[in-house]
């Protein structure tokens, strides 16, 4: 496999991998580094990629595992930087509101277990099918549905509590 073939496989999903890394690592620099590392690892194992029926799923899984490793390592202990990357609104008030809402939602997402977080991200942000998500997370489609439902319900509950200022 030469460089061009390799890039044809992995470049289209670089943003997807970045977004996934972003859900785990929060800081954009850290997520960028993660994608870079995953790419290097994939490139080193480029012969192995051929054996996988879906290289994309392999790359996703690798990114997820890499991020989890990073979080477990000591290096990540001081890497939690506030999420501030949404700046395309002209209406300032609306912008602030949206920004608050968005960062609030990501904070809520952080409370989810890792598997649920990944599944929720892959489905609601990346809009992947259940079969693709099942391949990436190495579970059955039924499990994906269950985890997704739990994750969505938990986010909903937390969101409603926030929205009602803790009064239910």
């Amino acid at each position: 496999m030469n460089q061009k073939e390799f890039l044809d496989i992995v470049l289209p999903i670089k943003n997807n991998l970045y977004r996934l890394a972003r859900r785990f690592l929060i800081s954009s620099d850290e997520a960028e580094d993660a994608v870079q590392e995953v790419f290097l690892k994939l490139w080193k194992n480029k012969e192995a990629i051929k054996k996988y029926r879906t290289p994309e799923a392999f790359a996703y899984t690798m990114t997820k595992n890499y991020c989890l490793d990073r979080l477990k390592s000591k290096q990540a202990s001081n890497l939690k930087i506030v999420h501030t990357n949404f700046e395309n609104r002209t209406d300032l008030e609306k912008h602030i509101e949206a920004k608050d809402g968005v960062s609030l939602l990501f904070k809520l997402m952080e409370t989810l277990p890792e598997q649920q977080k990944v599944i929720l991200h892959l489905r609601d942000v990346e809009q992947l099918s259940f079969s693709e998500i099942a391949k990436i997370t190495n579970t059955s489609q039924a499990n994906v549905r269950v985890s997704l439902s739990r994750a969505r319900k938990k986010i909903k509950d937390l969101l409603l509590i926030q929205y009602n200022y803790g009064v239910q």
Partner: peptide, 28 residues
């Protein structure tokens, strides 16, 4: 109304892109 934030956030999150370029040639 409460659910607007939910879908707005997913929408925004889906628009994030990796801005830096990736290096493959140096270490390979």
């Amino acid at each position: 109304k409460p659910y607007v934030v939910l879908f707005d956030a997913y929408n925004k999150a889906g628009q994030e892109v990796l801005e830096g370029s990736l290096i493959l040639a140096k270490k390979n």
